[in-house]
Every structure is written in C-alpha cells, then in structure tokens.
C-alpha cells in the first residue's frame, strides 16, 4: 500500500466484503422507478451503520 501511495496521504482501506456491503446499501435503489435523492443524513447513516466512522467518512 505504501508503494502505491507513493508519498500521498493515505485514505481508508476496506475489505472487498465491506465494499460489497457498502455498494449494496448505497446503490441498490439507483434503478428504482420511484428513485428520489437520498438526503445526506441518510447517506451518513449508511456509513455509520457499516462501521465506516471517523473523520475520513464524514460527509459534508
């Protein structure tokens, strides 16, 4: 990871499994015929529920 970062500030590393969980929670509604924009607090709740917490995961 350090080699790939090449001196850049590291971000967050998550497993493929966690990425999968995140994708399901985040994207499953995108093709719903009644899709509506998700409020930021609901997006933040998804991250929190998956344990993606801390400053890195704090939405604006």
């Amino acid at each position: 990871m350090e080699r790939w970062l090449g001196g850049r500030e590291p971000g967050a590393t998550i497993s493929a499994g966690k990425t999968c969980e995140l994708a399901i929670s985040w994207w499953s509604d995108r093709l719903d015929p009644d899709w509506r924009p998700r409020p930021s607090d609901e997006s933040q709740a998804i991250l929190d529920r998956l344990g993606l917490v801390g400053e890195f995961w704090r939405l604006p």
Binding site: M1, W4, R8, E9, P10, G11, A12, T13, I14, S15, A16, G17, T19, C20, L47, E55, F56, W57, R58, L59, P60
Partner: peptide, 14 residues
C-alpha cells in the same frame, strides 16, 4: 464478494 481476500483503498475523504 468471492473471493474476499482483496482490499480497496479510498484515497479521498468523504
């Protein structure tokens, strides 16, 4: 995910 051995690095904060 199958397999589940890989990792994903997100560089940019939310």
């Amino acid at each position: 995910a199958d397999p589940d051995e890989h990792v994903v690095h997100l560089l940019v904060p939310a």
